[in-house]
């Protein structure tokens, strides 16, 4: 396993563009901390984002994993291109000839996906912990370490998403087209939702589309904005009460895990079936 990771490490870290993208990704993750410094001054009203409770434990786990997940696109580009480039450079062929088995090839890519997801999760954990310790109103250990399932969900979400990218890279063999397909797929899922909603109702539509790959991944961590007390106050003032379930459900995790397994299996099946 270590050997496979070393192989992927050599391939990735000697490539300038992936090095830049990976660095940019982690710098941007750090930038979540910059939200804390955002200040608005409207004459009398002084508004600091950090004081609106977004960095309160345990809410911060939800908020930060949600925000950080947007940046996954950076790593998605790397995953897609590291897979597709193996085809365009024909190095996939040379790797197999040199004695890598087809499964080892896919497995080494999957290990990279897992490492990216794991490092990213640890990173978000550390950044959130530091921010929380600075700004949170509650600092009791029992509160700090509650709601940690958001980090698990974040890890699963990234793993699932990157596995999808890996599969698209294997399937389409061209990074630009694979990324384009990713966007189109997102649109397809959206269109399906709209069609289902117009035919039935939004409940039926959601209950079907939550099994779709991208939808199932985004369902893992719901938007945290409406959970903010400031937003709730505004909502109640205009007579709305927000009732929404923000928690991470086990069956949502299972759906994403099943997709992940399928994507990896399909990638392997493709490689096995193809003549290179």
């Amino acid at each position: 396993m270590l050997r496979l990771l070393q192989i992927e490490y050599i391939k990735l870290w000697n490539n300038r563009s992936s090095k830049v993208l990976i660095t940019a990704y982690f710098v941007l993750l750090l930038c979540i901390a910059l939200i804390a410094t955002v200040n608005f001054d409207f004459g009398e009203i002084h508004f600091q984002v950090a004081e609106q409770g977004i960095f309160n434990f345990p809410y911060i786990w939800h908020f930060n994993t949600y925000i950080a997940a947007w940046l996954k696109l950076f790593l998605a580009i790397i995953i897609v291109s590291m897979t597709a480039n193996e085809y365009s450079n024909k190095t996939i062929k040379q790797n197999l000839i040199d004695g890598l088995s087809k499964w080892e090839f896919i497995y080494s890519k999957f290990l990279t996906v897992l490492s990216f997801a794991a490092i990213s999760t640890v990173f978000v954990f550390v950044v959130s912990m530091v921010l929380g310790l600075i700004y949170s109103d509650y600092n009791e250990a029992s509160i700090i370490f509650s709601d940690l399932e958001y980090l698990l969900a974040y890890f699963i979400k990234l793993t699932g998403f990157f596995s999808f990218c890996l599969f698209l890279g294997m399937l389409i063999k061209r990074s630009a087209f694979a990324l384009g397909f990713l966007v189109i797929w997102q649109i397809i899922e959206g269109v399906f939702y709209l069609i289902l909603r117009s035919q039935f109702n939004s409940d039926t539509a959601s209950s079907v589309t939550r099994f779709f790959p991208l939808n199932s991944m985004s369902n893992l961590i719901k938007e945290p904005g409406s959970r903010l007390s400031a937003v709730r106050t505004v909502a109640s003032q205009i007579g709305e009460t927000i009732t929404k379930d923000y928690s991470v459900h086990w069956y949502e995790i299972v759906i994403v895990l099943i997709w992940t397994a399928l994507f990896i299996y399909w990638s392997y099946a493709l490689l096995k079936k193809r003549d290179l």
């Binding site: 050997r3 192989i7 050599i10 000697n14 490539n15 450079n89 040199d98 004695g99 890598l100």
Partner: peptide, 19 residues
């Protein structure tokens, strides 16, 4: 077939790892 962005030595290092 080699990785175009890597030096000859790095490319061979990769082959060493595989073999």
């Amino acid at each position: 077939n080699f990785y175009p962005y890597m030096t000859a030595e790095k490319n061979l290092e990769l082959v060493c790892k595989i073999k």
